[in-house]
């Protein structure tokens, strides 16, 4: 069964339509990359999938493991296994990453009828996942994202993803702001999390990330639509030629 089926999704903000009919199917075990020019709607799609209320879905449907995703509150989606690594992670003053994740992990466990992790179990899990993205303990005891560097924020997103073990991970420009070593670390982290039961949607501007996280499909978003899809070689072609030819094609189609 497909994990995610997006069908003709339209969404707008303040009367302005941003997503203009998106259809996309993601199966377990797959990695999809979404590329596209600035302002084309990539983050909007990610936000709508995660349940941000500022966007209004005007038509279309999204099924997640056979359930109506759009009917669920953001936290329910997360508990069902959806994870969004934010393009701009939010600062949460006064709440440490550790404390935050303890709450999040246990809320998720509660939702599936599991007992909360005790302090020892939780620390063990933390240690394990910390080594995955090589994140520093001191960072985790500070207020979440507050005063973190751009790269630290992104790495922290992947760390959180590792802790929450989602079915579907959506990475919104997780590579931007990362130095070359950090990029490799993050990509390796994602690759270690990959298995036949989960899937990833990777939003990026750069071919480079896709050298490490090799996608099964590459889609190009332009002006609120997925205007072109292909294999991983499409990313190379875009790197080479830019978006103009895509835009032209799209205009001819319209």
């Amino acid at each position: 069964m497909s994990m995610l089926i997006i069908n003709e999704l339209h969404a707008s903000i303040e009367e302005r339509e941003i997503l203009k009919g998106i259809s996309l199917t993601v199966n377990p075990g797959e990695v999809h990359a979404i590329m596209g020019p600035n302002g084309s709607g990539k983050s909007t799609l990610a936000s709508v999938l995660a349940g941000r209320e500022t966007y209004e879905v005007t038509s279309g449907s999204v099924a997640f493991d056979g359930k109506d995703l759009l009917d669920m509150a953001p936290e329910e989606r997360a508990r069902e296994g959806m994870f969004l690594a934010f393009q701009y992670p939010v600062e949460i003053p006064g709440v440490s990453t550790t404390n935050f994740l303890k709450t999040a992990v246990n809320e998720k466990r509660k939702a599936v009828g599991l007992a909360p992790l005790d302090a020892v179990q939780f620390m063990k899990m933390m240690k394990e996942k910390m080594s995955l993205v090589q994140i520093d303990q001191t960072l985790l005891s500070r207020s979440l994202n507050e005063g973190f560097s751009g790269g630290e924020k992104k790495r922290n997103e992947i760390f959180q993803m590792a802790m929450l073990e989602p079915r579907l991970g959506i990475l919104d420009e997780t590579d931007s702001g990362l130095d070359i070593d950090a990029l490799r670390l993050v990509a390796n982290g994602v690759n270690k999390l990959r298995n036949k039961d989960n899937a990833f949607v990777v939003i990026t501007h750069y071919q480079r990330l896709l050298e490490y996280i090799v996608p099964d499909f590459v889609h190009v978003m332009y002006n609120g639509r997925l205007v072109k899809s292909g294999g991983k070689e499409l990313a190379l072609e875009l790197e080479d030629k830019g978006y103009d030819w895509i835009k032209e094609e799209a205009h001819e189609m319209a």
Partner: peptide
């Protein structure tokens, strides 16, 4: 901030 936390499974 609330949405960020919700996106991690924490209720509003």
């Amino acid at each position: 901030a609330i949405f960020y936390m919700q996106a991690r499974g924490i209720s509003k």
